[in-house]
Structure formats: C-alpha cells, structure tokens
C-alpha cells in the first residue's frame, strides 16, 4: 500500500482521468449548446430567411443540446470529490436564491417604471453566471 501511495503521482489516477474527461465533455457540450443558441437567434435572419421549418428545427436542436449539457453537468458534479461537491452545492444555492430575489426586484423596477430600459432575461442570465462564479471562488477560498 505504501509503495502504491508513493508511486501514485507517477501517472494520473483513474479518478483524475475521469474528472478530466468529464470536464472536457462538459466544455464540449456547453460550447455546442452556445453555438446552437447563436444559430437559433441569428440563423433565421442571416442564414435561412425566417424559414419556419428550419427555425423550429434550430429551436428543438438547441433545447435537446441544452438537456444533454445538463445531464453531462450532473455527471461532472457527481465525479467531483465531496468538498468540491459541497462548494458547488453552496454556489448553486446562493445563485438560485439571489437570482430569484434580484430577478423579481429587477422585474418590479421595470413594472413600476423606475428604470428607463426594458428588463431583459439576458441580464438575469449574466447576473446568475457572475454570482455562480463569485460564489464558487469564495467557497473555494474558504476551504484553503
């Protein structure tokens, strides 16, 4: 056992290898989903002149790839160790809570005309992304 541990760093372990593969898969499916999102948004105007069949196909493809990305992300998180999973869980909880509160407040501001511009869903997505990144970073720092 001692020799096994001493030799452990000479090559990546199965756990490390599986994590690398999971991360690469997540990156691939996320990139694919983002590309089909762009295709769904810009394709009708610039590629197929609002052909309804192609537009519906793009929307369904984007949705299907989004679901695949979620499944790959679940596998990625399950492959992390228990502390990394806890950091992710905390970050998700903070993101969900803040997105709900800030999102509804933002919507209210729009409804009562306290902001001059329209409250876009993309603003909420950006907020969620930044919150998740910050929460993950702070969570990781707390365990250092």
């Amino acid at each position: 056992m001692t020799n096994d541990v001493n030799n452990a760093r000479s090559k990546p372990t199965d756990w490390q290898q599986a994590n690398k593969i999971n991360t690469a898969r997540l990156a691939f499916w996320t990139a694919t989903w983002v590309l089909t999102m762009a295709l769904t948004n810009f394709g009708p105007r610039f590629l197929w002149d609002f052909d309804q069949v192609l537009t519906i196909t793009a929307v369904i493809l984007n949705l299907a790839l989004g679901l695949k990305m979620v499944l790959v992300n679940i596998k990625h998180i399950k492959g992390l160790d228990e502390m990394q999973q806890r950091i992710q869980l905390n970050a998700m909880g903070i993101t969900l809570g803040l997105s709900l509160i800030v999102g509804l407040t933002y919507s209210n501001l729009n409804v009562v005309n306290l902001i001059s511009f329209h409250a876009e869903i993309s603003h909420l997505v950006i907020f969620m992304g930044l919150t998740y990144l910050t929460a993950t970073f702070i969570g990781s720092r707390n365990y250092q």
Binding site: T2, D4, V5, N6, A8, R9, T13, D14, W15, Q16, D81, E82, M83, Q84, R86, S140, N142, Y143, Q144
Partner: peptide
C-alpha cells in the same frame, strides 16, 4: 510515511485541496 498531500489525495481519490482543508480542520 513521507507522503505528500497530492499522494494522499490520489490514494483517497480526492483533490489535494480537500486533503489540505481536512488537515487544517476546515472540512
């Protein structure tokens, strides 16, 4: 046993950061 954190992490199939956090009593 003259093991590094990384070697112990590999043996327990966790990250080196997790071993560090456990040793420091943070996790």
């Amino acid at each position: 046993r003259d093991w590094t954190q990384a070697q112990l992490a590999d043996a327990l199939e966790v990250s080196r950061q997790t071993i560090n956090a456990i040793e420091k009593g943070k996790f």
